[in-house]
Design a binder for these strands. Structure first.
Lengths: 146, 146
DNA sequence: CTGCTCTCAGACAATTCGTCTGAACTCCGG
DNA sequence: CCGGAGTTCAGACGAATTGTCTGAGAGCAG
């Protein structure tokens, strides 16, 4: 059964972040999975033995939430993200919109733009994206006219 | 002592939403406060007696978080929001940025724009805001040049 | 067979959250 | 003065969440 939106906890996010960074480093090719031991070494560099089980538990929960994919192989299982950073951003933004603004994303966008922390380069990039969408919409509309 | 950022729960948000709507309705003048009884009537139209205490507890917690202001008056205390809807949006967006994107708000903005759920009107409004900021930055720069 | 690594499965404590109970206070009408 | 209604004050409660931890068992290399 498809579970409703589920967020991830801070500790789970730390684990996901390790997977995302690993996959970014292998963007050119197929990233190999990451083992529990490898995640431990990143998150708890000087960790105790029990932290292995902590990461294990966190991965179990992430898998149950559909955010992580497990591949059983010897000698150790390997893990991949099944939810990208951008997908999580989207989920969380939608959640904020739904709960605080009646579902509308516009107030979020307005807030971000008016926050004035954008550099002029960022604003230029944003304009370029807007132009692209306008062009896309126009082309689609023309296509449909037939 | 100033507490770190604290989010509000869904039930607390429902209470805040009542205050925000009430204050929006009185945007032209000083909004009178809202009583617990009034909040109950909105949130639990056909409620049991215990729901009075639920709203009370939620207001206590919101007050402790600094999100609500209480004014003691007779016959009942009245409440005002001390955190606007837009401020909550900002807090939540910053929280997402901090936890998921290393603090940068740009991926959030990019996500919203590329989400393609913006109407052409919204995109036009966004461009207009960007133009205004560019103009503001230019004016500030000119002024500084002396 | 032993030791190491890993899997599997659960327990645990602290915290959060929404709900609820009950004592006490205030005010007002009779 | 008393009773009733409404409200405040203060806490308890159960369920769920969350990060941590324990322990049995499996697999493998030496």
């Amino acid at each position: 059964m498809s579970a409703p939106f589920q967020d991830v906890t801070d500790a789970e996010l730390a684990v996901l972040d390790v997977l995302w960074k690993h996959e970014d480093e292998h963007a050119q090719d197929q990233a190999p999975g990451v083992t529990i031991r490898e995640i431990c070494q990143v998150l708890y560099p000087r960790g105790k033995a029990s932290e292995y089980a902590t990461v294990q538990k966190l991965l179990d929960r992430l898998e149950a939430k559909g955010c992580v994919e497990r591949r059983r192989q010897s000698p150790a299982h390997v893990f991949f993200s099944a939810l990208s950073r951008d997908e999580l951003i989207g989920r969380r933004l939608n959640s904020v919109a739904k709960k605080v603004c009646g579902g509308s994303l516009t107030p979020l966008l307005t807030h971000l733009v008016q926050n004035q922390e954008l550099t002029s380069e960022e604003r230029a990039a944003l304009r370029s994206m807007l132009d692209q969408f306008d062009a896309t919409k126009k082309t689609r509309r023309k296509g449909k006219k037939k």
